[in-house]
């Protein structure tokens, strides 16, 4: 095991794939000479050259679409967006092109590409740069969608994503680029669609993904002080969703808390909670608690941003009021 921060783990996966597969190339705004807005690709241009590390104009729709075309012709591009909010500019290409090409061609065309994008609030970037559109993109059939919460998962999931023959949205919580974690020395991959039981417990299941896992850590500490044993579940993948792991956990604890760091209205947990109550209602001892960010545009001011963000205190309060009373 070695300790790594998130951006190093992501870079390691990129570097490996560039070394191992000549069809891999990276495209995006300021990923080359500048080194990437979050410094993930720093140094790659020097090592691999401008043929494979391609700085693009500020034309999200077109360089996302160019990635799709390159993938359809047999390359394996990794496209970086500076923010998942910028996916909106290229939404047609992601949804209509990457998502639909295979289906509407009757299976003739594959699009093996990854779209990496920083996601989420918490770093005071205001309304346009703090959103979490992986929750929208997870709805699109034909696209996979993953979001790691730690360096180990980031490395394992990105390895798998780049090798996958379908488009993958790889959402990277902006809050976590500098977060540390242990990463195994031996090569490993993490399959898409596999949730992770971070910690086993018996009394209550708490699930989230990405930056939401940090909130759960705080919640867990407080629950442990009261001798409540929480099972902690990291979704890791928003499409496909690992309902099997969720099911096993619910059958054990019979209580569920679902946390979104994106807006509660229409967040991925809305979908999950709905499906879970359809499938596993008999196994639940109480209402599913769902907590998300406030349904407002993200404010810039730190206090306001904190007020919009789902805090561990809010989660604890709800757990006691609705589940453990």
């Amino acid at each position: 095991m070695s300790e790594m921060i998130m951006r190093e783990a992501i870079k390691k996966a990129l570097e490996e794939s560039l070394e191992n597969d000549p069809n891999v190339l990276i495209m995006g705004e300021d990923i080359g000479e500048y080194g990437g807005a979050y410094a993930v690709t720093d140094g790659l241009l020097k090592k691999f050259g401008s043929n494979r590390i391609k700085d693009t104009p500020i034309s999200e729709a077109t360089f996302i679409g160019a990635g799709i075309g390159a993938a359809a012709a047999g390359l394996r591009p990794v496209v970086e967006l500076m923010s998942i909010s910028f996916s909106l500019v290229g939404f047609d290409q992601i949804v209509n092109m990457a998502g639909n090409l295979r289906y509407m061609s009757g299976g003739q065309i594959s699009v093996p590409m990854v779209i990496r994008a920083p996601t989420g609030a918490g770093v005071q970037l205001g309304a346009t740069h703090s959103q979490s559109f992986e929750t929208w993109l997870a709805e699109v059939p034909g696209i996979y969608c993953v979001c790691p919460s730690n360096p180990k998962d980031a490395l394992g999931l990105l390895r798998t994503s780049i090798k996958n023959n379908n488009p993958v949205i790889f959402a990277e919580p902006a809050l976590l680029y500098g977060s540390k974690g242990e990463v195994p020395e031996d090569y490993y991959e993490i399959p898409l669609g596999s949730a992770n039981i971070v910690k086993e417990g018996n009394d209550i299941t708490i699930m989230s993904y990405g930056a939401g896992m940090s909130i759960i850590e705080e919640v867990n500490q407080k629950l442990e002080e009261s001798n409540i044993s929480a099972e902690i579940l990291d979704l890791r993948s928003l499409n496909p969703i690992d309902y099997k792991t969720i099911e096993e956990s619910i059958k054990k604890t019979n209580k569920l808390v679902a946390i979104d760091t994106s807006r509660k209205n229409g967040g991925i947990m809305a979908e999950l909670v709905s499906t879970i109550q359809e499938k596993f209602l008999d196994w639940l001892d109480g209402p599913i608690i769902r907590i998300g960010a406030e349904d407002v545009p993200w404010p810039y001011n730190k206090d306001l941003e904190n007020a919009a963000y789902p805090s561990s205190n809010k989660v604890i309060e709800k757990i006691y009021k609705q589940l453990l009373n």
Binding site: I64, G65, G69, A72, A73, Q93, M97
Partner: peptide, 25 residues
């Protein structure tokens, strides 16, 4: 023959990517 594309103008970026692959390979 990589499509008929029904969102007006959506085929331009796709063409760029296919051409990139021709150039790269």
């Amino acid at each position: 023959f990589m499509g008929g594309h029904a969102i007006v103008g959506a085929q331009f970026p796709l063409a760029a990517g296919l051409a990139l692959a021709c150039q790269y390979k």
